[in-house]
Design a binder for these strands. Structure first.
Lengths: 230, 230
DNA sequence: AGAAAAGCGGAGTTGCACACTCCGGATGAG
DNA sequence: CTCATCCGGAGTGTGCAACTCCGCTTTTCT
């Protein structure tokens, strides 16, 4: 839960600098988890009990800091998908992945935003590239064993996770675990039963949907590209 | 679908003024439906082919305009709940309400925001006051007939609608009807079956969750209160 | 038609939040 | 004790959305 973010270790940092860097990383974890990437570097610095200048000394900008911090969490999600793929019973794999993914994302608003590609569509696509093949295989196997209905697609998994995240997003402060109430309802819907009235979307569609979506909500365009003001 | 927003009719508007007012209302409907209340009055004016000044001549600010426009849509949702309550089979009532509410909200991002209390918590609470008693009664009856499980609460209805709205929110541009795919999965979860692992939240909790939620996403505080800059 | 009232348009003003810089002063290393 | 390194936070730059102002146009009235 608390790991160090690897630094190039060119020249050993001065003692206070090292301490502050650690404070910043920890503060960023907490702040981004709670308020998402909309928090400013100033917020992170203040939460760490440091000045803004210090924050900018250690990280060129907010997104670099975020990238550094979320790299592990992303790897964890990928491992989760891998783990799910190695399970004997694909159904257990799917449910396990859903629960784990929802758990990770509901606990961390920033992670949610990263996975949804709110700030960096490219990064999201890379993550998608890593995860979706794993889920594809899992879903295929689950269909073969009859654990899930034939018309279930991999994108359904993603959509279900999103729905659970919504619940956590909205009710997280009031009832952090409420999303678990709706998990069984949703996974049950994947099992064989009545057919679904509308076909799933393709992975590409889901991607573009995710990347274009919040651009509108979280202030259009923003400066995903560099050149803040040169 | 196209109704006039009642004006006090103190002195009859000049011909061009009346026409422009209608244009503004229509433009606002379209713009708010597509982009939500984040759209500026400038946007609405431009979309109507008019100047900003004209917009401000007719409406003191964006929120007044929005209030005028969404009043009907809100009434429609309430009527939907009433209609659902009058149905003989409470199960049909519930499903009908879910579908109708989701349909209305997924078609109109602005309406969604209003119902979620993103911009005006008070207004949302009023709406909640009008709807939740109706749904309470409906759910009670549905439980009595065994159509839904005993541990289902009225707040579950609201949460389900939210989840469907999320799907529409994200995938609306790519596949406007995709949310319907997940409707049966969710309503099916309300039927008798395995128990849910987590208890529902109270209506009050849901309210506060909704009002506090997006304040953070859509720029904290903003100027829900008047005094923009006096 | 002609004048006055009503309305229009959109450049410009104000407020605000965030990203990022800068440099005098503090702190740690040798 | 000295100096390189680092800290802090006031200050600068930028962008955006809300809203105003006033010269000009259109309608209405007689």
């Amino acid at each position: 839960m608390t790991t160090k973010v690897d630094e190039p270790a060119s020249r050993p940092l001065r003692k206070d600098a090292a301490r502050n860097r650690a404070l910043l990383v920890q503060a960023a974890r907490e702040v981004f988890a709670e308020r998402g990437l909309e928090a400013s570097l100033d917020d992170v610095a203040r939460h760490a009990g440091l000045g803004v200048g210090t924050a900018y000394r250690h990280f060129p900008n907010k997104h670099e800091l975020a990238k550094a911090i979320f790299a592990e969490a992303i790897d964890d999600i990928v491992s989760l998908a891998e783990l799910a793929g190695t399970m004997d019973d694909p159904w257990n794999g799917i449910v396990g992945f859903l629960e784990g993914a929802a758990e990770a994302q509901t606990a961390d608003r920033g992670l949610r935003e990263v996975l949804m590609g709110v700030h960096d569509p490219e990064q999201m696509e890379q993550i998608n590239d890593r995860i979706s093949p794993l889920l594809d295989e899992l879903v295929t196997r689950a269909k073969a064993t009859g654990a899930v209905r034939a018309d279930v697609e991999t994108t359904d998994i993603g959509v279900v996770v999103m729905m659970l995240c919504t619940v956590a997003d909205i009710t997280g402060d009031v009832a952090p675990d409420l999303w678990r109430r709706y998990l069984p309802m949703l996974v049950n819907g994947l099992r064989p039963g009545a057919d679904l009235p509308v076909p799933p979307i393709s992975n590409d569609q889901l991607r573009t949907a995710m990347t274009t979506h919040k651009q509108r909500l979280i202030r259009a365009g923003q400066n995903a590209a560099p050149s803040p003001h040169d």
